[in-house]
Design a protein around this nucleic acid. Sequence first.
DNA 1: ACAGTAACCTGTTTGC
DNA 2: TGCAAACAGGTTACTG
Length: 270
Amino acid sequence: MPELPEVETTRRGISPAILNKKINDVIIRRANLRYPIPKIIHEKLIAKSFSEITRRSKYLIFQSEHGSMILHLGMSGNLRIVPKLTAPQKHDHVDFIFDDCCLRYTDPRRFGAILWTEKNPEQHKLLISLGPEPLTAKFNGAHLFKIAQRHSLTVKNFIMDSKNVVGVGNIYASEALFLSKIHPHQAANKITLEQYNLLAKMIKTTLKKAIKAGGTTLKDFYQFDGKPGYFKNELQVYGRAGEKCYDCNGLIKKIITGQRATYFCEECQD
DNA sequence: ACAGTAACCTGTTTGC
DNA sequence: TGCAAACAGGTTACTG
């Protein structure tokens, strides 16, 4: 999926094209995403506008007059600005029609979600127990170290758990661990405070760089204007099994951690 | 309470 | 070439 940098790239990309513009229509071609899209969004949004798009974790929150639309891109979701009357393709499930353009939601695997709430969206069931945002001061090595003391699972799974810190998906978890020289299979409660300080720093650095590059396009992700994200060129270990480490020339290995592919350098990380 | 696993769904790649 | 299995960026719900 879109991990945090891809979601943030999308937010920045679509905002100027649609904010404060009248929504003429909401076309739902297929409502059965991860959760059914509530029918009510149609009447709640028609003739209204989005005043702001914010991001919490990998959720985009579209602020509107009568409430908030919460949108998650899931594994293969994608929001793009397309010209009005662009013919929909097979997986183009939802269109938001404006005077001069259309915001289109595409999602082949349909793991994404579009929800509606009239309360504070941060209090929504899906958002309420999320951990700190990685790019804020609240997230640091001391925070990770403290909660890690009661977790014996692998450090990779630990940083991918959204209760501990949000927005660190499979790609950036491998990348940040490589930059911190920590083996992904180390137990979370065996990592020192110094290591967590470095890891927190590397998570921030990696995510910021990826946002600058417009995210990582492996296959499905495209920015709002259809361009791919360019961070793939900067990946140090992800997807490089069998190739040489840029740092030490050692071999990059692929292992499975909690059913997910994990890449690391055997020489650099222990 | 926690760790591990299955499930949601479709498309593409890999291997026999 | 054909077909089936494996795999893919996320998250929740269930199991033990």
